[in-house]
């Protein structure tokens, strides 16, 4: 036994004793198998009620309050509701919102010239929605945000702004196949974006 070589007093050996009933191995194995079998038979009989979603074909619909990808809503006349007041970017704990304000020559009203959200920095806390005084920014039930380059995680006005009368409030029960709201993030490369450097993947 290797234990004899260890210096005395260093090792605390704890005896393991089980009663006779606990040492009987077979009954508990049978009991455990019965649980599994009961579930197997129950699931075979009720296979349509199994909580399984065949994901890319059937999509999960989250609740109304789900905090997914953002949208910027527009007014009836097609202008964006955002007045570039910087409330959202001030409230943002991840500092992921970048706004540049412009002024409309005619109405003297502020509007965002640039409104970028870095989705890789965003923590989806919902503070921007809480902070917005104009009900301009909302979070949707869209949760599919896969991208192939980091630069595309920064979404701007053209990805965020949705048409007027966009259904912001959704009914609770969705149907299979629909994801909710947001528009898909553009997958085609942006024209001003350099193609990925192939040397990065060669391993030098």
């Amino acid at each position: 036994m290797p234990i004899e070589r260890v210096k005395p007093g260093v090792v605390k050996v704890v005896p393991r004793k089980l009663s006779v009933a606990e040492r009987l191995y077979i009954p508990k194995v049978v009991a455990g198998m019965l649980v599994t079998l009961r579930h197997l038979i129950h699931n075979l009989l009720h296979y349509k009620k199994l909580p399984i979603i065949s994901y890319p074909e059937v999509k999960r619909v989250y609740s109304e309050r789900f905090r997914g990808r953002h949208i910027l809503t527009t007014r009836e006349d097609g202008t964006t509701r955002c007045v570039a007041c910087y409330m959202c970017s001030t409230a943002c704990p991840a500092e992921c919102i970048t706004i540049e304000a412009g002024e409309d020559e005619r109405t003297r009203e502020k509007f965002p010239v640039r409104y970028d959200i870095d989705l890789l920095r965003c923590v989806f806390c919902g503070y921007c929605v809480d902070a917005c005084p104009e009900d301009a920014i909302y979070m949707t039930r869209d949760y599919e945000m896969a991208i192939d380059t980091r630069a595309r995680a920064v979404v701007g006005l053209r990805d965020l702004v949705v048409p007027p009368n966009f259904p912001v409030a959704l009914e609770k029960k969705g149907t299979a196949g629909g994801t909710g709201l947001g528009q898909p993030i553009r997958q085609a490369p942006y024209p001003d974006e350099a193609p990925p450097n192939p040397d990065l993947y060669r391993g030098a």
């Binding site: 704890v14 005896p15 393991r16 089980l18 009991a31």
Partner: peptide, 22 residues
């Protein structure tokens, strides 16, 4: 109850946990 039926009196579970890390 179901989790406990699988573990609490299971011999293997007890051999691995009783008296370990006192």
């Amino acid at each position: 109850d179901e989790y406990e039926s699988l573990l609490t009196n299971n011999r293997i579970w007890k051999r691995r946990t009783v008296g370990v890390g006192v």
